[in-house]
Amino acid sequence: MALYGKQIDGLIDTGATISVLSSKMYLRLPESKRPDLSGKCGQLRVADGKVITPMGMAMFPLEISGKVMRCRMLVADIEIPAVIGYAFMRHNNCVMDVGRGTVEFNGETAKSYLESQRATSVFKLSLDENVVKPASSEMMIPTRIVGDIPVGHEAIINDGSSKLAKIGVLVGKSIFEPTSKVIPVPVANVTGSPQTLYKKTIAAECLVVRACHLKDIDESTDEEDEYLCRMEERPVGDESFPEHMEIIVESSKQHLVDAETKQLKKILKTNEKVFAKNKDDLGKTNLVYHKIDTGNAKPVKQAP
């Protein structure tokens, strides 16, 4: 679906009464397009039981398969870009076809994916057929994705199979589209004898790459040009302010005067390394070591 011409991912959640827009997505909208938020919206309990306070509520024009539908949404600090709740689904005659992977709103059909596909970021490739690798040779071998096909623009081979490495067959890194039925993988036999690779043998571990495509400058609208001009006129200090901390300022400034807001931004900027950009940006250290005694339990993620 799209919001003001920008494509976003949305989770259809029949367990959620109201729809929710990520505060990060809201703050990325040009100021001229951001609807004013109503502050009277209570609190929001998310799936893990945590209670969060939304920034507010407003009506947003969601575009689904080319048709614009108005959706009342809370704006809150959630992990995913948007959640489509039951109220919007019922009002717009939502019909889901899990078998075909489609969802319909007021007769307009759009492609949908299982959450397990969307959540998959690490997956494996297995050989699609038996292959005999000549000695000291390089070639492409056909593989297929093991399990659900992950959703993403592109994926990259992150690690070759340790099983193949033991027989002297190395897997090269490459980028590919996860939606391809057969995925060619570069491999090299570095031994002096032929090696037989068998069908369904795991060839590599891969990672989904969430690619972003920049809009061509010639396609920008007058409102976007105006917004970019305002961005260029900002003081240098504002341009360098971290985007992931804008939500702290936005949720706090209603209780502050202008001078206090500037002081808050200065403090946040000075200590920006303390704030994680996302859940994967928590950092690491080698100053403290932690040991977990697993006894005789075998690894469940990957065999040694």
Rank of each mutant, 00 (worst) to 15 (best):
A2S: 15
Y4T: 10
G5M: 00
I12R: 02
D13A: 02
D13G: 03
M25S: 12
R28H: 14
L29H: 05
L29I: 12
P30I: 03
P35A: 01
S38P: 10
Q43T: 11
A47P: 08
G49H: 05
V51I: 09
V51M: 03
M55Y: 00
M55E: 01
M57N: 12
A58W: 03
S65Y: 07
M69E: 01
R70F: 03
C71Q: 02
R72Y: 04
M73T: 08
V75H: 02
A76I: 10
I78K: 02
I80A: 12
R90P: 04
N92I: 09
N93L: 13
C94D: 10
M96K: 05
G99S: 12
T102P: 08
F105V: 11
K111R: 15
S116D: 11
T120C: 03
S121C: 07
K124L: 07
L125F: 00
L125W: 02
L127H: 08
K133N: 10
P134Q: 01
P134W: 00
A135G: 05
S136I: 06
S136H: 09
S137I: 01
M139L: 10
T143D: 03
R144A: 09
I145C: 11
I145K: 04
V151T: 13
G152T: 03
G168S: 05
V171Y: 08
V171W: 05
F176S: 13
S180D: 15
V182Q: 05
I183A: 15
A188H: 10
T191F: 01
G192W: 00
S193V: 13
S193F: 11
P194Q: 02
P194K: 05
Q195A: 13
T196K: 11
L197N: 12
K200F: 03
L207V: 08
L207M: 09
V208Y: 02
V209H: 07
R210E: 08
D218F: 12
S220M: 13
L228K: 06
R230S: 14
E233S: 14
E233A: 14
E233G: 11
P235H: 00
V236H: 05
P242L: 03
P242C: 04
E243H: 11
I247D: 07
I247N: 11
V249Y: 00
V249G: 06
E250V: 14
H255P: 05
V257N: 15
D258L: 14
Q263P: 05
E272Y: 01
A276P: 13
K277Y: 05
N278C: 09
D281T: 08
V288D: 02
V288A: 04
G295V: 10
G295I: 09
N296F: 04
K298D: 11
K298A: 14
A303C: 11
